[in-house]
Structure formats: C-alpha cells, structure tokens
Nucleic acid binder design. Sequence first.
RNA 1: GGCCCCAUCGUCUAGUGGCCUAGGACAUCGGCCUCUCACGCCGGUAACAGGGGUUCGAGUCCCCUUGGGGUCACCA
Length: 495
Amino acid sequence: MEEVRVRFPPSPTGYLHIGGARTALFNWLFAKKHNGRLILRIEDTDEERSTQASIDGIIDGLQWLGIDWDEGPYFQTDFAADHVAAANRLLASGHAYKCFCTKEELEKKREAAMAEKRSEVGYDGTCRHLNAEQVRAKEAQGIPATIRFKVSNRPGTLFYDDEVLGRIERTYSEIEDFVIVRSNGKPLYLLCNVVDDIRDRISHVIRGQDHMTNTTRQVLLYEALGAKLPVFAHMPLTLDLQKRKISKRSHGEVVAVQFYRDMGFIPWALCNFLCLLGWNPGTDREFFSREELVETFSLSRISRVNSVFNFKPGDAKFFTDPKLIAINEHYLRTMDPAELGQLVRRELEAENLWDPAYATSRSDWYLATLDLIRDRFHTLKDFVTAGRAYFSDQYAIDAKPLAKNVLKQPELAVWLPQLAERYTVLAEFNALSTEQACRGLADALAVKPGVLINGMRTVLTGQLAGPSMFDIVATLGRERVVARLRRTADLFAAP
RNA sequence: GGCCCCAUCGUCUAGUGGCCUAGGACAUCGGCCUCUCACGCCGGUAACAGGGGUUCGAGUCCCCUUGGGGUCACCA
C-alpha cells in the first residue's frame, strides 16, 4: 500500500463533541496502524462562525484524549489562493460556469418546489447555458456571480467503492450543479476540502455518513481536477435515544469532550468507549491498550449501522452512557497505580490537597492509598470528594451515615474516644492490632462490633461505605485516627 | 417529497447458508462474599421489524412493506 495519509478537518464553529472525537480517533488509529500520518486541518473558511475559542477547544480536547497528529494544524484560509486557482482552472476547462442567479431567487424557487413536493428542488440550470456574450453582458452590469460546477449530463451512474459500505452509486442527472465559489469570490467547502486533500496527498477519507452526498459531488471534482480518488470510508453516525443526531445545541454538555475531562474521566477510557461505538474487533474483547487497539483496528470492521449514545437526561446515576461509566470504572480499578497517581495528582492539586511528599518520601503511602480506595469509585473526582478524608482533615460528614451510624447511638460520643485511648497505647498500630483493640472494646462494652465499626467509619471518613475498616485505620495512621475519634462528641453538638 | 444509507436483547454488538437451543458486554433482577459499601464470582429476564420468495436448510441470499437515519445552502 502506498503511504497512508489521513486527516481530521474540524470546522471551528463549536466545541469538540464525541462524534467528532470518534472520527478523529478512527483516523488516528488507522494512521498508526499503517505507519501513516494524521493531518489536522482546521477548516475555517466560514468566517462568520469560526472562532479562536473553538480552535483552542478542539486542540485541547484532542490533546487530552491523547490523539496526536503528525502535521498541522493547517488552516484552510491560508490556502485560499489554491482554492481560487482550482476554481479558475475548472472555469477555464469548461467544468464550471458563472451563475448570476441571486440567493433570494433561488431560495424562492426551492421553497416553492419543496412546498409542491416536487422532486426537482435543486438548481434549475438557468445560467448553465449562457453564452459568452450573455456572460460578458451580465458582468458589465456588475451583477455578482457565483461559480457552479457543471455536472455532466451523461446518462448512467457515477460510483465509488466505500471501505465500509461497499459500492455507492448515483445517477448523474440527480446531481445538481453545485456552487463552488461564493459571489464574493470565496471558495466553498466542497471545493476547498478536495483541493486541500489533493495537496495534502490524503490517501483515505474517513468521515461520517452525513458526508455521503458530499462525496458523490466531490468525486466529480477529483475527476475534473485530474486527481486520483482517495479511498472513502463513511462511518455510522452517533445518535441519541430518540435517534437524533447528537449536538451540543440540543444535548448540552454530555456530548462535549470537555465534559468528560471536567467529570474526571480517564482519557483512554473515553477513547476505548468511543471506538466500540460503531466498530468491534470481531471477538469478545472490549478493553484495549493503545497499542492493542492500533494493532486490532481495521476499517472493514466498522459497522454500517448508526449507534445510539445511551444517555438519559435527568438520570443522576447515569449522567452519561452507562457503558462509558463502566469502562471508566474498569480502568480506574485496573490501571497501573503510578499512572493513576498522575491523574489523581491533578485532581488533588486543583483542590489544594496535593502534598509534594506524595511524589517522594510518601509515594508508597500515596499509591497504596489510591489502590485501597479506587475499587468503589466511578471517576477521578471521587478521590477528592468521597475520598477527601484520606488527604485532608477538612472533610464533610455525609448526612446519611451520620444519622444512621452515629446519632442513633449517642454512647458513641464516649465509646469512640475510649477506643482512641486504647489506640494510643498500642505497641504496633496496624490493621490487625487496631481490629483486636476495637473488638476487645466491643466485648467490654457488650455491644456488637459493627456498632463501633460503622460509627468509626463515619467519623473517620465521613462516608457510609468504604474499604475494610481497619485497612482504613492503618492507612490514616495513628495520629489522625486518634484525633478524629476523640472529636466524636462534636458531631452531636452540630445544629 | 427526491436521492442515498441502514435494520439482532433497553443500549453497544457477535453472526458472511447448517457449529444458533442466537453468543458477549453494559444496564437490570436474584444469589454468594461481608464490619459498611463496593469489587469479585455465580445465575436469571431480555432480540433476529413484518411479509413473500430462493434453498434439503435463512438471523445470514433476493424482493416488497414498514421503520429509522442522512442529505437536498453563496455552512462545514
């Protein structure tokens, strides 16, 4: 195979959403798999809607996901001269013509056609047959003109072989003469995109099925420009539960890549989830490292069916697709502790809970603690919320465990400080010795150990649930445990 | 409406004519484990859109119907 060159060409008119991220991911995977190159090209020819904030957001999002590119970012507007030159070539070779119809006239015609449910809603070809004289006359009058591509009126069909869909055919007569240059002289997407792909020597165009009608027209452009066709691969779209195309406008934050970073997702977990949306390896395998996925990926296993992003607005537990949450949890529990340590470090830093010693003298303690508590967490955020008591003495006591495990048992205000005293005199302070001391006290008081254990869990961590109690005690250390247990009475004084 | 694409559990999907009594994952339900809650493990519920063909045999091939999606801009 010749050199593989693919591209991700977002238009900077909004934030990077998961559909776009998936397209970028598939291109990245394909490039890596074939030792090819991924080109990032910002298609900013829509001056009115393109923004710098969007460009920054897209780049940040890709970087966060770990999708790196080999060339670019190129900016489409920097190549305006290429696009204009191509349009002029098309004009000169008779593949395009000037059209003097106004936008308003065309809209009126189109609306009328739509209203009457006529099939021919496309351009009617008014200016297609203007002779040189007529064109000169119109120009002399100063009437602005767009440039339209002259679609061959030969009978039959045009086709291309899609890597995922197979042969796609369309009859020439169904394709209207489309505009390639605005009346203000600025070339349009259909043309720019092809000119850039030719210049960038793109070998494979991997994009959404929403581009399929563009592709048939662009095939015409490649032909007219005398360029070799790239291989096309149209990916299925991602829809919502109502089967509608997802967009930030109608779905809000959940479809923005940024959201997942803010919610504490592991970047690769999102990638892993996204790749499973519309692609599968043909085996039962669902978790892949980067290397494994690059190795396994292939265009031919991309699904032809649109997939649904299973998100139910208003569901607190499943604030995004449950499978994505499950995949994130899986990585949270199984990933290399040191790597997890880096991710959690950022969360701790953001909360001013990071102690530089965690990277040096207390590194063992830090990683062991993460390993102890990671099992019941869902996202990276949990380390600084539910897990806050492990890193700070300023932590909230949840109302539910407070009521259930502490307030119901007023004697704990005395018992827990008593336990603290027993802990002070322990020769060895570890999970075993603290458990023995605790059960010993329970015996002496003639209460079930659970009363003491659940009470101390609440006092020590503020949480209803958590790891095995005496592992927590050992992790927190004698000083913190004793201090916290001694203050138990304070909880009863609260308003 | 025209054209194009698509159609297996709630969701993501396996399935390329016999290995399908339709498999896996998530979700859900039940059980085990247990100081809590998880994790983990075990088990259950749950799908071939409908109708015609072709064939000894169809989830798999063909046709029709239905349904869904995309697109029809001087946006990208």
